[in-house]
Amino acid sequence: MTELGRAAAAALDLILSGDAELAGIVGLSLQVSLSAVLIAALVAMPAGALLAVLRFPGRGLLVVLLNALMGLPPVVVGLLVYLALSRAGPLGSWGLLFTPTAMIVAQAILVTPIIAALTRQTVADLQEEYREQLASLGVRPLAAVPALLWDARFSLLTALLAGLGRAVAEVGAVIIVGGNIAGVTRVMTTAIALETSKGDLPLALGLGMVLVALAVAINATAFGAQGLLRRVQG
């Protein structure tokens, strides 16, 4: 059997055996990344929308910076969060290092620029369409933000998915601030890294396939929901 064949077999075996450890790892992956995306979205969506509707000096620079931060290396984010949460760091007394909370913080930081930048673009496009109508109704730019965000909701789902994809797939940040502790902070990507370092490539690839299948399932659900809502809500 080829390496890929063994990987597929390992993946299938993992899923079918209903391995409790795997379920825990998948569950933690989802919990950490979904929480991170949710928290990031609460900050990033209003921020991105504000950046789209407000005009102020330095705005262009901020947009460029935000777009550039989409490529923020996870390892760098992990390192920064580690330095902040380490006992030797400013927030050390919170004792959050090597906990899922620390991982959520790191991933939230990682995906905030992504969601904010995509929100900004989406809202800017929509605002172009709505500008005259909203001005005619006497809606000021700031007051338009909630309406624009709400009307962009189907497109913004894509921004959330992009953020989730980034969060669930990254390993650099969570392995540093989580420590890949078995049963506590081990998620799909750090488990894959561990199996790779053990040279168990089929198992690593198998875990990777589970991750991809999960991503496909999430995106398919979102796609279906998006289509349905568009048909029902216009």
């Binding site: 369409e129 109704l137 006497g138 709400w150 909701r153």
Partner: peptide
């Protein structure tokens, strides 16, 4: 002002009108 292409919000017909009233 009524435009050539009406720009309606992605919400109910009633909510489109109450939105305008809120901002008035």
């Amino acid at each position: 002002f009524v435009f050539q292409r009406p720009v309606l919000l992605r919400r109910s017909t009633l909510a489109n009108v109450t939105f305008a009233l809120a901002h008035a």
